[in-house]
Simulated scan of single mutants.
Amino acid sequence: MVVQTETVADGVLLVRLNRPDARNALNMELRTRLAEVFLALADDPAVRCVVVTGSPKVFAAGADIKEMAESGAIEMMGRRILRLWKPLADCPKPVIAAVNGVALGGGCELAMHADIIVAGEGARFGQPEVKVGIMPGGGATQRLVRAVGVYRAMRMMLTGEPVTAAEALSMGLVSEVVADDTVLDRALEMARAIAAMPPLAVQQIKETVYAGLDGSLAGGLLLERKAFEILFASADQKEGMRAFIEKRSPTFEGK
């Protein structure tokens, strides 16, 4: 199985890339299975947070070059790769990428589909597509620029050279850097904390942030205000505020 899934705690689903012999290169089988997993979990109320990881040695080394080396343009168009990225991009649940080792090309783009990236100290991030005669095709020309700014993004894409975890943190590409042997534990700890939060509020935060990214400040603030007000119709809002007043732990049900 090229993608393994496991429920590791209440509300937390672990999604693991599993092509060890190919350094988790993203071939069509893996991409298709990953899209299927994300389509299913999007509508699963039992899933409140998702952690995506690779192995302790490599997150994902990029697209499977052997699979595409002799392909033509029409064949590449027919693969409709964007269709396979869409379930990840549209996932309504919070996604955390736990990155050890290299996240290159499509692997870096996969990590950037997450909402939070936890990286090991030895992790490396890069977009080396230019070195094999192509360019990023999984969103880096847009997501990387938005994450780190045009000048840092252009350096990574035009030279093809990777950055260290420390550099990625300083430029805003990752959320947190931890010891290599604690990456998955830290990501799961964070996922458990998010899964314990009110699901409707979590969903509205994610939806509002991304919906407002490409719009005006005024439009984004309007979206925020409407989402804020709508949450007062939820049972979780009443439970959360009553629990705060009564000095007890709340129990959120996503209602």
Score class of each variant (00 low, 15 high):
219 G>C: 08
96 I>S: 07
131 K>E: 07
143 R>V: 09
193 A>F: 08
109 E>I: 00
175 S>L: 01
171 M>T: 06
112 M>Y: 01
79 R>Y: 13
151 Y>G: 03
37 V>R: 15
180 D>V: 06
219 G>P: 02
71 S>C: 11
91 C>E: 02
167 E>L: 04
51 V>R: 04
23 R>Q: 13
203 Q>C: 11
169 L>K: 13
122 G>W: 06
57 K>N: 14
18 N>Y: 12
154 M>T: 02
157 M>C: 02
75 E>V: 07
10 D>Q: 06
230 I>M: 12
220 G>C: 01
131 K>N: 11
196 A>R: 09
168 A>P: 03
90 D>C: 09
13 L>Y: 00
43 D>L: 13
252 F>G: 03
241 M>V: 15
164 T>R: 06
79 R>L: 12
82 L>R: 10
73 A>K: 14
119 A>M: 01
185 D>H: 09
127 Q>I: 15
111 A>G: 09
136 P>D: 15
28 M>A: 09
178 V>E: 06
123 A>K: 10
239 E>K: 11
25 A>T: 13
57 K>I: 01
86 K>G: 05
52 V>N: 00
251 T>K: 07
104 L>M: 10
101 G>Q: 12
144 L>P: 03
36 E>L: 05
28 M>G: 09
58 V>K: 08
28 M>P: 02
123 A>M: 13
107 G>I: 01
130 V>H: 13
200 L>N: 08
216 S>H: 11
186 R>E: 14
21 D>T: 15
168 A>G: 07
126 G>V: 09
129 E>F: 12
26 L>N: 00
211 A>V: 02
130 V>W: 12
1 M>L: 05
86 K>Y: 07
230 I>H: 12
36 E>G: 10
200 L>P: 00
4 Q>D: 09
150 V>Q: 15
144 L>F: 13
135 M>Q: 08
67 E>S: 06
22 A>F: 04
238 K>W: 08
195 A>M: 07
158 L>E: 10
112 M>E: 04
190 M>L: 14
162 P>L: 14
161 E>T: 04
55 S>G: 10
121 E>S: 05
138 G>Q: 14
